[in-house]
Design a protein around this nucleic acid. Structure first.
Length: 598
RNA sequence: GGGGCUGUAGUUCAGCACGGUUAGAACGCCGGCCUGUCACGCCGGAGGUCGCGGGUUCAAGUCCCGUCAGCCCCGCCA
């Protein structure tokens, strides 16, 4: 390599006119006019027009004639002002150009499978993932990753300044029960035994508290062998934090400070502090979900007391079975076709149907209501509805009559769908803490209590006495952080005393033997002066996705997996040689066969 | 495990409901011309196992069955 870069192209301006420079980069486009060839050359920082004139040096011009898109070249020359009228206001370096007097082709390139100078979102994602390096190299392709770098940098800077230690924990570790499916790694040295990749460093960070680390964080990969979604990858990055001698308020206010710093540094947005808080109960009541999108209203209202005496059988029987009738009011009068579609949507989500009432505030009271079911309701009920939903404009009321669970989940999905489709969602970032979660929920299939968060979550002090008698009434010292309807983080104050931890295990039907076998090491650690502690973990990919307004975390992960868990770039997962499998003792029978043979 | 959408030149798509010439377009690519373009222009050219397999038919890109792959969703994700 003879021509060694002296400047980045993106930094060059009219003030650099006259300077002798060497630039290196990739050819985005070439415009060959015979005697003059223009190349748009780019590096990480920007784009510069390079001019090769036959009259200046025929030999150099000749080389330029062979250069094609995506060739890697270095060019030496002088920065000059473009002739009057030839400026390109569309690019930052548009006032100037590089007059080439030397060029070196550092590497050729095949014609890329897709044009790098066009809108890559039009290209199929599968192709982009296979040639991810080309997508990233295209103009703007590195932006999400540069942004991500900035976010991570800000997080580290902030937490370091607050006295946190960045401490690593192992990837080859022990399977933890009560969670997602583990990725297992067979042990070569111990036939039949396996490591598990961590679903989170949960137990390690708690043990770090026992170790006196006091304030810990780690930006760390976690692994869960579950099916993928737009916002879920089998390996993802978590911002993991834990602190000793703190309570919920300490952690929440620290996180608020952190988020404020991140949004200020990276998006130049000042967040309003403190964040809103909703109890789990209120979130379920008003939004039907524990991760409500607060960028718009359209809250759910329960109308059970208004309709339990109605002659409308669907509502009455749902109430008689112990269910509820809940509804929401959408600010639009839907057509019959749209109503049918929405009913189908509700049914797919498990509702038996979707009742609707169109309302318009004009004219006589009775004529304001239009619906096949309105005849079942007495005037006082309609009056109450008008009052409850504060009906003032034309709209449609939707109701689901079912168990509370079904009504909530259907209506919350309906709310999100209508919010999106009716354009009710305002721009911006709405954070909300969800607090006062129940500690347990009942698992019908397994017929036992399971943890809402994880088994190391501390119950509220005042509820501890209810643990054995009314466990479902026990609330936890847990908190989730929700941003625009997406859960971006969750944490809790942990149990730090062995006795309480054992009581919880007992309620979860984890036997002492099981507990000992699965995390005896952790219980032992608790016995050696574990301080009170708590923490939180954030899905970093999701946070960055939301900050950039992307629809999928794949957009902010360099080499993500497809929905079926494949890496299209490398072809992973892939078959391995039989020798590797035998070496890992994964086919014990075959191993014996092989020994017999030899 | 289930539901939905998609798969045709290198790329993005049209053609498919109603089977029937040699499967088209744009961009890209290759060659030629061009000293001021910046989505350069002009002339010419190449490029297709219609995802794959099977079936129906005189005839299948088009209809049927299966299968693979990509995306979205449910289940699952403490």
């Amino acid at each position: 390599m003879q021509l060694k870069r002296t400047v980045y192209m993106g930094e060059l301006r009219a003030s650099d006119v006259g300077k002798e420079v060497i630039v290196s980069g990739w050819v985005l486009r070439r415009r060959d006019h015979g005697g003059v060839i223009f190349l748009d050359l780019r590096d990480r920082t920007g784009l510069l027009q390079v001019v090769f004139e036959e009259g200046i040096d025929p030999e150099v011009h000749k080389i330029a004639d062979t250069i094609r898109n995506e060739y890697v070249i270095s060019v030496k020359g002088k920065i000059r002002r473009r002739p009057p009228g030839m400026e390109n206001p569309k690019i930052p370096t548009g006032e100037i150009e590089l007059e080439a007097d030397e060029v070196e082709i550092l590497n050729t390139s095949k014609t890329p499978p897709f044009a790098l100078d066009e809108d890559l979102s039009e290209v199929s994602e599968a192709l982009r993932l296979k040639y991810r390096y080309l997508e990233m190299r295209a103009p703007g392709g590195l932006e999400p990753f540069i942004f991500r770098h900035k976010v991570v940098h800000t997080i580290r800077e902030f937490l370091n300044s607050q006295g946190f230690l960045d401490v690593e924990t192992p990837f080859l570790t022990k399977s933890t029960p009560e969670g997602a499916r583990d990725f297992l790694v067979p042990s070569r040295l111990y036939p039949g035994k396996f490591y598990a990749l961590p679903q989170s460093p949960q137990l390690f960070k708690q043990i770090l508290m026992v170790a006196g680390v006091d304030k810990y964080y780690q930006i760390v990969k976690c692994f869960r062998d579950e099916d993928l979604r737009a916002d879920r990858q089998p390996e993802f990055t978590q911002l993991d934090m834990e602190m000793s001698f703190v309570d919920e308020e300490d952690i929440m206010s620290l996180v608020e400070g952190l988020m404020a710093k991140v949004f200020e540094n990276c998006l130049d947005i000042k967040l309003e502090l403190p964040f809103k808080r909703l109890t789990y109960e209120d979130a379920m009541k008003h939004y039907g979900t524990d991760r409500p999108d607060l960028r718009f209203g359209m809250e759910l209202k329960e109308v059970t007391p208004l309709v339990d005496g109605t002659s409308f059988k669907v509502f009455r029987s749902a109430v008689e079975k112990g269910g509820v009738v809940k509804g929401l009011c959408a600010p639009k009068q839907f057509s019959r076709k749209e109503l049918d579609e929405l009913t189908g949507f509700a049914q797919e989500l498990g509702a038996k149907g979707l009742a609707w009432i169109k309302y318009s505030p004009e004219g006589e009271f009775e004529k304001r209501w239009s619906s096949p079911i309105v005849k079942f309701f007495e005037k006082w009920v309609l009056e109450k509805l008008e009052e409850l939903f504060e009906l003032k404009k034309p709209c449609t009321l939707f109701f689901v009559a079912d168990s509370e669970e079904v009504a909530n989940s259907v209506l919350s999905e309906l709310r999100n769908k209508l919010g999106k489709e009716l354009g009710l969602i305002k721009d911006g970032f709405e954070f909300v803490w969800i607090v006062d979660f129940p500690l347990f929920e009942w698992d019908e299939e397994e017929e036992r209590l399971v943890s809402v968060h994880h088994p190391f979550t501390h119950p509220k002090e005042e509820d501890i006495e209810l643990l054995e008698t009314e466990p479902l009434k026990v609330k936890s010292r847990a908190y989730d952080l929700v941003l625009n309807g997406v859960e971006i983080g969750g944490g809790s104050i942990r149990i730090h005393r062995k006795e309480l931890q054992e009581r919880i295990f007992k309620l979860l039907k984890i036997t002492p033997e099981e507990a000992e076998e699965k995390f005896g090491f952790f219980l032992t650690a608790l016995e050696y002066g574990a301080p009170p502690h708590g923490g939180i973990a954030f899905g970093l990919d999701r946070l960055i996705m939301l900050m950039l307004g992307k629809k999928s975390i794949r957009e902010v992960i360099t080499f993500p997996k497809t929905q079926r868990g494949q890496c299209l770039l490398t072809g992973a997962p892939a078959e391995v040689k039989i020798e590797q499998i035998l070496e890992l003792h994964l086919l014990p029978g075959w191993e014996k066969e092989k020994k017999k043979e030899s």
